[in-house]
Nucleic acid binder design. Structure first.
Lengths: 142, 142
DNA sequence: CTAGTTGCAAAGAGTTTGCATGGCG
DNA sequence: CGCCATGCAAACTCTTTGCAACTAG
């Protein structure tokens, strides 16, 4: 597990290079295929599969999205990182905060539940969008 | 927003009835359509959409599954509640804990992000599944 | 040279949409 | 009776597979 491909090809290099350059940002297969016009989408999918299998890339689904998202991790787990997903602009914010680690700890102790920070995503609204939109109205419904 | 449909129809009643009878269990649209041979899958999808929009049902994707899963929540019972979703058994645990409220507060202050508790789901493994599964290996692997 | 790789086209799976008919109010 | 709901078929989107040509080692 660490071998993404046996042969070194231009396509493989470009894809991995692009993914790593994103430093954790997520992308869809379509986005990658779109970025490289000279790489077929089939190839993109195949490399993604191998990278995921090799543990270099993480694959997951985002709420409301019909396509999978991929994120470069470089083989190592991205620590205790949590994610904040803005429902307004779709931005994905990475968070490596002690408070959140404490929560995981608390939930484990008091609720017997082992949180997986890698898959947990907090949905909400980011600062930028909070400013743009009207601040009032939002509390509780029905 | 609690109105799933304007007209009362046999199909709508059967679908909602079935969903609520599952008491939290998750089902796929295909499973529902398969259960009722006299209800078209199109209708199932449309009702599901409305129910999700009305807050009566939750929609999400399970790891490795290519189809969406739906779960009845009843709409009214989800105040400031957070949720814990077991990746192993699919169980959804409701949590209304101060610590989590504090987190939302913290994230808002220090990270300028307004968490939406209604959509945020913590993924991980529940106590039951932790016991069933092998206890070792848990903190990062590579 | 050999075997893994590429990518077009087509197949598949899940979900959505168009449209004419049917049913609730 | 008006309007929403239904459902079949077709359209769509994302992802996988078949297969012949290509290329890294």
């Amino acid at each position: 597990m660490g071998r993404a491909s046996r042969y070194q090809t231009r396509q493989g290099a470009q894809i991995l290079d692009y993914l790593s350059s994103l430093k954790g940002e997520h992308v869809t297969a379509a986005a990658i295929a779109g970025r490289f016009e000279d790489i077929g989408k089939t190839t993109v999918y195949r490399h993604l599969d191998k990278l995921v299998e090799a543990g270099m890339v993480r694959r997951y689904f985002l709420e409301g999205k019909d396509s999978a998202c991929y994120q470069y991790t470089g083989g190592e787990e991205c620590g205790e990182r949590f994610h904040l997903k803005c429902e307004s602009c779709g931005d994905l914010i990475h968070l490596n905060c002690d408070v959140l680690t404490d929560v995981a700890d608390h939930v484990m102790k008091d609720h017997r539940f082992a949180i997986n920070p890698l898959k947990t995503v907090f949905y909400g609204t980011c600062g930028s969008c909070l400013s743009k939109t009207k601040p009032p109205a939002e509390s509780g419904n029905s």
